[in-house]
Amino acid sequence: MEVRTIKVFTTVDNINLHTQVVDMSMTYGQQFGPTYLDGADVTKIKPHNSHEGKTFYVLPNDDTLRVEAFEYYHTTDPSFLGRYMSALNHTKKWKYPQVNGLTSIKWADNNCYLATALLTLQQIELKFNPPALQDAYYRARAGEAANFCALILAYCNKTVGELGDVRETMSYLFQHANLDSCKRVLNVVCKTCGQQQTTLKGVEAVMYMGTLSYEQFKKGVQIPCTCGKQATKYLVQQESPFVMMSAPPAQYELKHGTFTCASEYTGNYQCGHYKHITSKETLYCIDGALLTKSSEYKGPITDVFYKENSYTTTIK
């Protein structure tokens, strides 16, 4: 009895394709271990004539594949690729409408935090270190965002349907971005203890939790000093293409032309909904596939993004 075979390709990165001759009487799992086709788990399936010449994702289970996976995804987590594939199996079914010149995501599976993050990423200057993220990001900007969303979920250790947080998501993504040249110098002034300067680099240099107003941050924000008295913390120097200011959701007025974009969060910790506000020729609110415009805006804002380049204080 002759062994019926077909020729397929296996890959971990969709760049390096490895030619395989597979036995049609055995499952993919018996031949390769966990195997995925377009995100779908085909591990328990036997090869079919229609699979001839198709590319299958496999887990990096030998040295060659491990090197290829690390170079593309910059992670050695053995569960990463499987999590990416199972997320992709959902995100490829989502709709990605162009809204006001940006790629958004039609609401499904509690994905409003991903839509808000995706919209924000198209408006701030950011370059990702893992080629996987950078490639998928370019495709997302062009309207094909399924891979990018699935990668975000995998890097953030999230599953489809789980509630997510924009600030946490951005923080994970910033860790995989090139923020080497970003720098922030802060000064804390206390009447009792004097003053202390701190220099922050990388992710810490672009994120701040405690106030939404970048102007206020430049002037000074009140913080408790270690001595128990009130101290003032203010920005001395900022070198970065953008800054992200966050605070627990509270009524906040966004003035046209003073910011790049913002995240609105309605609801409580267990259950809520994100919308995205962007400042173009007027203010726009993007909620999944829905767009509304207004000249002014007041609502429960939790993150505001500002364009920056270089700032030095005039406070002496």
Rank of each mutant, 00 (worst) to 15 (best):
L133P: 01
N49Q: 13
K218E: 05
L290G: 14
Y265M: 15
T116A: 09
E253L: 10
P78V: 12
Y265E: 05
E68K: 15
R141C: 13
T19S: 13
F56T: 00
N16K: 09
K316Q: 15
K95V: 14
Q270G: 11
Y297C: 07
D135Y: 07
D38P: 04
L59N: 10
K92F: 00
T76I: 07
G194Q: 07
D41V: 14
L114R: 02
P34V: 07
C193P: 02
T64S: 11
M245F: 07
T232G: 04
F217D: 04
C193Q: 05
T5N: 09
E52A: 12
T314Y: 15
C261L: 07
H273Y: 06
Q197A: 11
G53Q: 10
Q197W: 07
R83T: 03
E68R: 10
I223C: 12
T314F: 08
Q123G: 03
Y234Q: 07
K93G: 11
C285H: 09
K183L: 08
K127M: 08
E296T: 14
T258M: 15
S240R: 04
V12K: 13
D41R: 03
G101P: 03
Q30G: 08
L65T: 10
Y28G: 01
E253M: 08
T302E: 05
Q237C: 12
T232Q: 10
D23K: 13
T19W: 13
C190A: 04
L283M: 08
V188S: 06
P224Q: 11
F80V: 04
S263V: 15
T282A: 12
C271R: 10
P78F: 08
K183A: 08
S279A: 07
N89M: 15
Q134C: 11
G29H: 07
T278R: 08
P248E: 12
A136N: 09
K219A: 14
S294H: 14
V189L: 08
G202W: 01
K127R: 13
N111C: 00
P130A: 12
Y214L: 14
K316R: 09
Q238Y: 02
L119E: 08
G202I: 00
L114F: 01
R141S: 09
P300K: 14
A132I: 01
T103N: 00
C112H: 08
K219N: 09
D303R: 02
T282S: 12
S279N: 08
E68Y: 05
Q98N: 09
Y172G: 10
A108K: 09
S213P: 07
V160P: 10
S240V: 03
T35Y: 01
K106Q: 15
V221K: 05
T314P: 08
C227Y: 01
Y36D: 00
T302N: 04
N157F: 07
C225K: 02
V12T: 13
N309Q: 14
N309E: 09
I45C: 09
Y155C: 02
D63T: 14
A262E: 03
K127I: 11
P249E: 08
K280R: 14
T43R: 12
M170S: 01
K201T: 13
M244D: 06
R66C: 08
Y113K: 04
C271I: 14
H90W: 11
L254K: 05
I277N: 07
Y208N: 09
Y28C: 00
L119V: 15
D23Q: 12
E308F: 14
Q270H: 13
F242T: 06
D41W: 02
L126E: 00
A87F: 02
L59G: 08
Q123Y: 02
L59I: 15
D62F: 03
C149R: 00
N61I: 11
D62V: 09
D135M: 09
Q195M: 14
R4M: 14
G272L: 03
K219W: 07
Q251A: 12
V99R: 03
E52I: 10
N89W: 15
A40P: 04
G257P: 04
V188R: 07
P78R: 00
T169V: 11
C227D: 03
S246A: 04
D135E: 12
Q175H: 15
S310P: 12
N111Y: 00
Y172P: 02
G299W: 02
Q31C: 12
F56C: 12
T258A: 11
E253V: 10
H256T: 14
L88P: 02
I223E: 13
Y138A: 15
K275L: 01
D135F: 08
F9M: 11
F242L: 06
H48W: 15
L118W: 01
T282P: 06
T199I: 12
N110K: 08
L290M: 13
A40Q: 11
A40V: 12
A289D: 07
F305Y: 09
L163A: 14
A205H: 01
D41L: 08
N187P: 04
T159V: 10
N111Q: 01
C156S: 08
Y265I: 09
G202A: 05
K93Q: 15
A205M: 01
L153P: 03
A150F: 00
L283E: 04
V166M: 15
V21D: 11
C190K: 03
K280F: 11
G272A: 10
G161I: 01
N157P: 00
I152R: 02
A108Q: 11
M245I: 05
Q98K: 13
F9L: 11
F32I: 10
S50H: 13
L291D: 07
K158E: 00
T27D: 15
N178F: 03
T312P: 09
Y57K: 05
K44V: 10
K183F: 09
L102A: 05
T313Y: 15
P131L: 01
R66A: 11
Q31L: 15
Y113C: 03
M26W: 14
T5I: 11
I315H: 15
D13V: 00
L126V: 10
M170H: 03
H74Q: 08
M1V: 06
E52V: 10
S213H: 06
F32G: 03
G29D: 10
T211W: 02
N178S: 14
H256E: 06
Q31T: 10
E296P: 07
